[in-house]
Amino acid sequence: MEVKFGITDISREVSIETSATPDEIAAQVRQAVVDASLVDLTDEKGRRILIPASKIGYVDLGAPAARAVGFGTL
């Protein structure tokens, strides 16, 4: 699923693909905001992304999308 973070004072979004569920991401962001800590996510390629909760403007939780493979129509 794609997750987009709007970061204060930065014009571009931070976008990552992760296998985590929307509920897992939302819970982690909520906890990081309460604790004034970092949101710590790992993307599908194994890269680790740390975002300070105090700098998050918004979080866009995209719908999990299965990618079509092949030439057939759905």
Rank of each mutant, 00 (worst) to 15 (best):
M1L: 09
E2H: 06
E2W: 02
E2I: 11
V3F: 04
F5G: 02
F5N: 08
G6K: 13
G6M: 11
I7L: 14
I7V: 15
T8N: 12
T8G: 09
I10R: 13
R12Q: 12
R12L: 12
R12S: 12
R12E: 14
E13W: 06
V14P: 01
S15I: 14
E17C: 13
E17H: 09
T18Q: 06
T21H: 10
T21C: 08
D23E: 14
D23C: 02
D23I: 03
D23L: 07
D23R: 04
E24Y: 02
I25S: 02
I25P: 01
I25L: 03
I25F: 01
A27N: 00
Q28A: 01
V29M: 03
V29G: 02
Q31F: 01
A32Q: 01
A32F: 00
A32H: 02
V33N: 06
D35V: 05
D35Q: 15
A36W: 08
S37F: 09
S37P: 03
L38R: 10
L38A: 14
V39Y: 00
D40M: 12
L41G: 05
L41V: 05
L41K: 03
T42D: 09
T42N: 07
T42F: 07
T42H: 04
D43E: 13
E44H: 08
E44T: 15
E44Q: 11
E44M: 13
E44K: 12
K45V: 12
K45R: 13
K45S: 15
R47I: 12
R47T: 13
R48W: 06
R48A: 14
I49H: 12
L50G: 13
L50K: 14
I51M: 08
I51C: 05
I51L: 14
P52L: 10
A53R: 09
A53C: 12
A53K: 03
A53M: 07
S54G: 15
S54P: 06
K55F: 12
K55N: 08
I56H: 01
I56F: 03
I56G: 03
I56R: 02
I56T: 03
I56V: 15
G57L: 10
G57N: 15
G57E: 15
Y58G: 09
V59M: 00
V59C: 00
D60M: 01
L61T: 00
L61I: 02
L61W: 00
L61S: 02
L61N: 01
G62K: 03
G62E: 06
A63R: 04
A63Y: 04
A65S: 14
A65T: 15
A65H: 09
A66M: 04
A66R: 04
A66F: 08
R67D: 13
A68G: 09
V69F: 11
V69C: 07
V69T: 11
V69Q: 14
G70K: 10
F71P: 02
F71D: 11
G72C: 05
G72V: 06
G72E: 10
G72A: 15
T73G: 14
T73Q: 11
T73H: 13
L74E: 13
